[in-house]
Amino acid sequence: MSQSKIKTIIVDDEPLARAGLRIRLEKFDDVEVVVECQNGLDAVSMISQHRPDLVFLDIQMPGLNGFQVINKLKELKQPIPMIIFVTAYDSYAIKAFDVHALDYLLKPADDERLSTAISKVREYFSTQNQDEQSRKLVNLVAELTGDDCEEILRKLANGEAVETNPYPDVLAIKDGSEVTRVNVADIQWIDAAGDYMCVHALDGMHIMRKTMKELEQELNPQLFVRVHRSAIANIRYVKKLVSHISGEYHLILSNDTELKVSRSHRDKVKAAMKM
């Protein structure tokens, strides 16, 4: 590494995401962005050509994803620079450690989190102690998974997946070039509108393109219960279950939203409410 500059490459298929990160990096006098790449293939080529010290690498990209970029560099016997993975998905954060990433950022990256990541990069280059850095990463993963360090090392060495909580704390909802992170705990209910899901949260409604079945599998079944074919409710926001003379049941949420409970889901809803 140059004594004064950390030579850096930004890799992301979204132009606005690249621009936003580049602007944020301008405040760091010792970080020099030498090139930007819009896909994994370009990244492999530019990393081989420029030999950067640091790469901000998006994981979800068409063609080669972020992990495949690392594997391709290894195949080509190219030096692997320090990697900070950039992702909209919490589940990818743990997987980043499989290729010894220094750190990761969740989109959209905030200034404080970025400053912390750059500080870690500086510390790494000042000590050049890769073994110690790897040990810190292993310890962090152990804290997140509950496994001991030796078990994590064994899994990494054998290429096994490091398991984490299967139910995310945050839903990353993509709308064009923007990604909104919605706290799962803030979601009150979800209903279907054609090919889209309307996610009703405390901060308003968000639209995401996903099937009801896919979304149901991502959410903790102890908190989220399917009430009928096109709706899921967060049981924490249910105020009461009302039965009508017609035999129909309705859930009343804390904000007075009323959701019909279908006959096929009635027993599951009652069980969720401990009735």
Rank of each mutant, 00 (worst) to 15 (best):
S246E: 03
K95R: 14
S2N: 15
L102R: 01
R263T: 05
V31Y: 01
L16V: 08
H206C: 06
R209F: 03
V86F: 00
R122K: 12
L21G: 00
R209M: 02
W189Q: 12
Y89S: 00
I252Y: 00
P166I: 04
S91I: 04
Q49K: 14
A161H: 00
M61G: 03
K274E: 13
M82W: 05
A161M: 10
S126A: 14
V11D: 08
L114V: 05
Y237M: 01
Y124T: 10
D13H: 01
F224L: 09
Q130W: 10
T127K: 14
D191S: 13
V121A: 13
V162P: 00
R236Y: 06
D29K: 15
A161V: 12
K27T: 11
A192L: 02
K155C: 04
R236T: 10
V86K: 06
N165R: 11
T8G: 06
E216R: 06
D147C: 09
W189H: 15
A233F: 05
I173N: 03
K72W: 03
P79V: 05
V242E: 14
Y196G: 01
L140C: 02
V225S: 07
L64Q: 08
R154I: 02
L156G: 00
E150H: 09
Y167C: 01
Q188A: 12
N220A: 11
H100K: 10
N71E: 15
Y89H: 14
A201K: 10
A231H: 05
D110R: 02
D195E: 13
V138A: 03
N234H: 12
P221C: 08
D148G: 07
Y104H: 04
T164E: 02
G66L: 10
P15Y: 07
M46L: 08
N183A: 15
A88P: 02
V199C: 11
R51I: 08
V86R: 02
T180L: 01
V44F: 00
P79M: 03
D256Y: 01
M1C: 07
A157E: 10
C37V: 04
G194N: 11
T257F: 01
L251Y: 09
K27P: 03
V31C: 06
V242K: 13
P166A: 03
V170K: 15
A17I: 05
S264Y: 02
S91A: 12
F85G: 07
C149G: 03
Q130M: 12
L251S: 03
K7C: 10
F125A: 06
Q128R: 12
L144M: 13
L259I: 13
N234S: 07
E151L: 13
A157C: 01
A185Q: 14
L106W: 02
L171Y: 07
A101Q: 01
L114Y: 06
P108R: 04
D148N: 15
L21N: 00
R122L: 09
G204W: 08
L64G: 06
G146C: 09
S177G: 01
G66P: 03
A272C: 05
L102M: 10
G20A: 13
P108M: 06
V86E: 03
D267K: 10
L202E: 15
L114M: 07
V11L: 08
L137P: 04
E248V: 05
A231C: 13
V34P: 08
G146A: 11
E258F: 02
T145F: 03
G194Y: 05
R266S: 05
V33E: 03
T127Y: 06
R122D: 09
R181Q: 15
Q222Y: 09
D53S: 11
A43C: 05
A96P: 01
